[in-house]
Write a protein that binds this DNA or RNA. Structure first.
Lengths: 253, 253
DNA sequence: CATTAGATTTCGGCA
DNA sequence: TGCCGAAGTCTAATG
């Protein structure tokens, strides 16, 4: 993860810092004394106080006070930002069309300014469990194919973590990407990015998408990239969930 | 504002850092590679990835990915925390009773760790709510139509509370239902339920949906039920602007 | 303390 | 793109 952290930036430096973060589409966090104004779906004003300002890489804009789960002011993804200096104070303006709205933060003092660029390819699994499939295959590699051996899990690359890295019976490197539900083109693209990390590998590298099913588009892309698909249902977790839940509840009593 | 920032803390130091922040009831922010598990109202799992973990002074617990306004996992205020070392990895567990739930973050690498203790006494001033519309009409009934008089607000029925009950210039009972945004079919259905409470009324009962706009489906339903629509924008002024008294109090920040 | 309605709801799915 | 419905909704107000 790349990051930069600065303390007590002066206005001009803060302006440049924020500009840099926005340009890099980083995840920006400011601890600052500020005023906030919002106009759009409603109108609101927040007087001087110390808050945490966050701008995400997708243009989400959040201002958090010290209390409450919800941000006191915010703007959804795809917000467009403008940063400027006004009377030696940095003003961040987030604008959106449809609905037309604007969120303005006037920064009086910035205590901690930081941004980072992180990789996070995993999405939340509420029902199906990718991890269970990975565990299952890691413990029972023969499920994939005869002679397959899993060598490592969560292998780190610049494009994220490879679920399982292994070798087939001929010693060829195998990269396995798991999906607990019907896999789409995104899953194939992800797998392709992992493969690209091993382009200079001596031996052949096989990419394998493991999922209960794939969309037609994904299948086409797999063929184009010369990647493979292995059908595998996620293990039925009902029993396990029940025991885990019971365990959790009984533990705290 | 008091704060402390550390980069690339080792597990043991991270553990102490978090402990310190919790003890001081500070606002804690971690940029870390982690796994997340939640059990309670639902069950969820989030594989390895780089995220931003936040613990507020009131015990709010948020885990943000690089995208989306909403946290991917969270726990409301008053969450109780436990921090421990497991296999050289820091695990933060946030627990709550009622509902019984638990959020667990396993930290593999902490890039930036920071906490701060800030002062923020101001609360949000907000305008543009449904209530503002109701207040406006109650004080200025002529907005609705010539001769309209508002007789009561929050009139209780078996189907809920009627926003405004009044009479038109001919003495017909009028039921007003307010929406601060574009009204849909649900708003019309609700108005219809209120009307049904007065089916045995001697005089004619007029149902009026008051909103900035309506969907086409809602308009159709209004016609079907023989109800009316009155276009009205919610007032977009803060109390501060309207009231001299409030202005006086808020002047000394 | 339980219930309820409103929200700058957000978010995903589907037409 | 727009509308509908769900959400671990959250939050403030009210009985």
């Amino acid at each position: 993860m790349k990051f930069r952290v600065e303390k007590n930036l002066k206005s001009e430096d803060l302006l440049n810092f924020i500009d840099e973060a926005l340009k890099k589409r980083a995840f920006l966090i400011l601890n600052a004394c500020c005023r906030v104004e919002y106009k759009g779906r409603a109108v609101s004003r927040l007087g001087l106080g110390e808050r945490t300002v966050i701008i995400k890489s997708d243009g989400s804009f959040l201002i958090h006070q010290n209390v409450n789960l919800e941000p006191v002011n915010w703007q959804p993804p795809k917000t467009k930002f403008k940063v400027e200096l006004d009377n030696d104070k940095v003003i961040i303006t987030g604008s959106r069309q449809k609905p037309k709205e604007k969120l303005e933060v006037k920064i009086y003092t910035a205590y901690v300014s930081s941004y980072h660029i992180g990789t996070d390819t995993k999405s939340l699994e509420l029902a199906g469990y990718e991890q269970d499939m990975v565990d299952l295959v890691y413990k029972n590699p023969e499920i994939i194919e005869n002679g397959f051996r899993a060598t490592s899990t969560e292998y780190s690359t610049s494009n994220g973590f490879i679920d399982i890295l292994g070798k087939d019976k001929n010693g060829n490197l195998m990269i396995l990407e798991f999906k607990s539900r019907r896999a789409g083109v995104n899953a194939v693209k992800q797998l392709k990015r992992y493969i690209d990390n091993f382009l200079d590998h001596k031996k052949q590298v096989r990419g394998l998408l493991v999922a209960p099913s794939v969309t037609d588009e994904a299948l086409e892309l797999l063929e184009k990239y010369e990647l493979e698909f292995k059908e595998l249902e996620p293990p039925r977790e009902l029993e396990k969930d029940k025991s885990l839940t019971l365990d959790f509840f009984s533990r705290n009593e």
